[in-house]
Structure formats: C-alpha cells, structure tokens
Amino acid sequence: MSLVGPSGSGKSSLLRAVIGLQKPLAGTVDPGVKPSEIGMLFQDDALLPWKTARDNVALGLGFRGCAQKSALVQADYWLDRLGLAGFEHRYPRHLSGGQRKRVALAQVLAQMPKLLLMDEPFASLDAIVRARVIQDVASLVEEERISVLLVTHDLEEAISLSDRVYLLSQGPRARITQVYDVPIPRPRDPVKARVHPSFAPLYEKLWNDLSHEVAFDQRAEAAE
C-alpha cells in the first residue's frame, strides 16, 4: 500500500516511527510484525562507501547472526537476482545510481523482511532506470510475498505499485482523509498497469483530492 499527501504531512515520519528511528509524540505503533522482520529502503541508497556491493549486502545478515561465509553466499545470490552478477566486488562509487539502488534493495531483501518500508526510494533515479528498478521491486516483493508500505509523491507510482492508496491531510496532526482501492489485478507489471482502464480515472480522482488538500492548506495559511 502507498501513502501520499502534501509535503509536511508526516509520511516519512510515520515510516521512521514504524521502524523505530523516531518515537511518536503520542500513542503507539503496532506494525504487526517483529522489529527484526521490518526492512527499510531510503531515498538515498546509503551504502557504506568503503565496502563492496557484496559486503554491503552481507552486512545486515551478519547483524542477524548469520556466519560470514553464509552471508556472502546469500549476498551473491541476491545480487544475482537483482541483475548485479559480476558487480559483487565493486565499491558503491563505481556503480551507477540504478545499480546502487539495486544493491540497497538486495541488502534489505536478503534479510527476508515481512514488511518493507520504502521512503521515496526511486526519486533520485532517472526515468528509464526508475521504471526498470520499479519493475524489479514489484516482481520481487510479489514473489517473496512481502508487504510494502510505500511513501511517495508520485501518484502514478503509488497506483501502479499498490493495492491500496492512502491520502494524508496536511500536517501537523495529519490524518487519513481518503482510501482508494486499486482494481488492477495481480500479478502486475507496474509499467503496463499505467494503461489499465481503471488507472486514469483513479489517477484523476487522487489528483483532485490531493490538490484539494494542498489548496485547503494554502487557504488556512492565508487566513492566518
């Protein structure tokens, strides 16, 4: 599912609270799975620059008690699955933006999370690389049956990837104002999903509602 909303509505803060990087000011967060079963993909790939692609992927496995040798074997497996066979010994600096994003994805998926949090993970990629990475992510999370909570500003991305889209109102104290079910069947190719008959009407509705939220916020600001 995806979370969309105006800037400042607290989308990223919500993800950070779910994974424990930030404490909520009030209330509790119940993600429904153990903290060790949650993975997070950030907008920046945040790979350790002094470690090779392989060592970066193996890193998280080591934290979970996996022996070094086994962690490296698994790292190779995940890099291979993400089309990075032959790039295992490259440092992040020597990889393209799309390749770095795939390494970051391999790093998270290697831990076999049940819930994957994604905070605008594709925003820094150019259009073609972005489409290809999104396709890979969609097919992998479907195959591995991983629940995904995606935060994005991109409505097309939200609809093409999700079964459900939540619209947040303007913050502070944002709330969910609308919930949209995406009737595009699975398995689904996120690129082809954009030409599904239900895509355009849903996009238009989502766009109108989001515009209303932003306009409402601007009116409130003007009144102050």
Binding site: L21, D44, A46, L59, G60, Q111
Partner: peptide, 17 residues
Amino acid sequence: DRKLVERIVTLGGSRWD
C-alpha cells in the same frame, strides 16, 4: 553521515556495529 548511521540501525546493527 546520519544516513549511514540510520542504515546500520535499520539493518539491525548494534552500537558496536
């Protein structure tokens, strides 16, 4: 870089990690 620190934390790393 705070992003690297958060990366280690979200991967389950300890303070020593």
